[in-house]
Design a protein around this nucleic acid. Structure first.
Lengths: 241, 241
DNA sequence: TATTGTTAGTGTATCCTAAACACTTTAAAA
DNA sequence: TTTTAAAGTGTTTAGGATACACTAACAATA
């Protein structure tokens, strides 16, 4: 295959722009869906609440950049991270035009809490009480909320917010808080167990009740095989691939 | 509100990158779903089949850029255009790192055919016979195919591919070709008409049969109101907003 | 040790939507 | 008039979603 030296040709007349990645990081504390914000460390808007972000470096892909940024703040690797949308309004950053590729992350909030990332003064905010954010980051958060609801209605992504072992009451509470609704316990258990995605364990979580609730874990085989098909809203999901 | 002069502060140490928009343009000729490709007009890969694209200009947003590019090629404005994904692999363009924000467009192929855009030597290719494309554009097309199938299973976007007046056999043929399947005529009509989205007109299209098929048009009120809810795959779609 | 309080866990009847299924109508062309 | 090709139309059946209420476990307390 033909290889060209980097400087043989250039798109010399075109403008070059700054490119950043911003992460909307979701966590679930057992009760409320939250996002993780930091105090911005540099001008402009220094010390204002902001998403965790950073500039894309010359040798890294966008996925790599988002993983690096997420790790910087949370210490976590290999978590669920998905590209959301790219924001490119010319005036969105008052200093200099900057394109922002946004990603949303779903993390196990317990794993995070063991980490230290004090430089950024991070704080979890319930989705209903997100403070004013810089630039157009409000829009980014809104879009991420929509996307997570949309996607979770069709695919089993919410498990990414729970520990490896979780109980059905925990899972139900998660769904209820994502969709801001209540679900009948019996129907919920029936549907979720019918997917074959869960493996019942022998031990119980006794932290939330005297009786204790059985732990479950994901059947990872089924999880990957049925990720597209989860709640069967789409007929013949194979056709969509 | 505070206004800063452009040069007061700059993110001076960061690398700036080229930013392009590429459009995956879908059309339906009554039989097959197709995409519109051009012969690339400059180096590298001059004269190879390529998506229609262009660099983002300093004063335009990403949406504006995609609309400009789409109009350049097709002459069309106000068509369905949706941001798809941003591709930013460092080596995707061998000359110089270029970020590509992709959009997919759904156009009425008949409106297009009246336009002239000979500079680009554009050609329609059935989705199953797309030629080799430059860079990572093959991936872009694959992703766009997935997205259109995914989205059309939940929202009435496929109407954007048809003329304002269309027949039910045409619509069914469109769905069948998007999902590469066959659908029972009676069930299809029942479901589609039950949405209340279609208004039956008095005249018929006699081009495809002796008997002729009644024309329908969209009820635009319902169309916008029910865009999120179309086929009711998602319960309480209001919750998703 | 009996009672109370709180959460976990379970089954069935009903309804509604999706799927399967075949014949009649229309109108031009032969 | 007969033939041909596509348009148009209803009903039955099956399966999944929804509604719904009581029992079990266990610790704390009286």
């Amino acid at each position: 295959m033909l290889r060209l030296k980097p400087n043989m040709i250039k798109y010399s007349k075109q403008t070059r722009l700054l490119l950043a990645v911003d992460c909307i990081i979701f966590g679930f504390d057992g009760d409320t869906l939250k996002i993780l914000l930091i105090k911005r460390g540099f001008q402009p808007e220094k010390d204002k609440w902001s998403l965790m972000g950073g500039f894309v470096q010359p040798a890294e892909s966008l996925d790599q950049a988002s993983n690096r940024i997420l790790k910087q703040l949370t210490g976590l690797e290999g978590v669920y991270l998905e590209q959301l949308h790219t924001f490119g309004n010319p005036l969105r950053d008052p200093i200099e035009r900057t394109i922002s590729v946004t990603y949303f992350a779903l993390i196990d909030i317990n794993k995070y809490e063991q980490q230290l990332s004090s430089d950024y003064h991070p704080e979890w905010f319930p989705l209903k009480r997100v403070p004013k954010l810089i630039f157009d980051q409000q829009d980014m958060v809104e879009l991420a909320k929509k996307r997570i609801r949309y996607k979770a209605a069709l695919h089993p992504i919410l498990f990414e917010l729970l520990p490896a072992k979780f109980t059905l009451p925990q899972l139900q509470s998660l769904y209820e808080s994502v969709y801001n609704t209540t679900i009948d316990k019996r129907n919920f258990r029936q549907r979720v167990l019918a997917t074959g995605l869960l493996i019942k364990l022998d031990d119980k979580d006794k932290s939330a009740s005297k009786r204790g609730a059985y732990y479950y874990q994901l059947n990872m085989q089924h999880y990957y095989a049925n990720f597209q098909a989860f709640l069967n809203f789409i007929p013949n999901p194979g056709n969509l691939l």
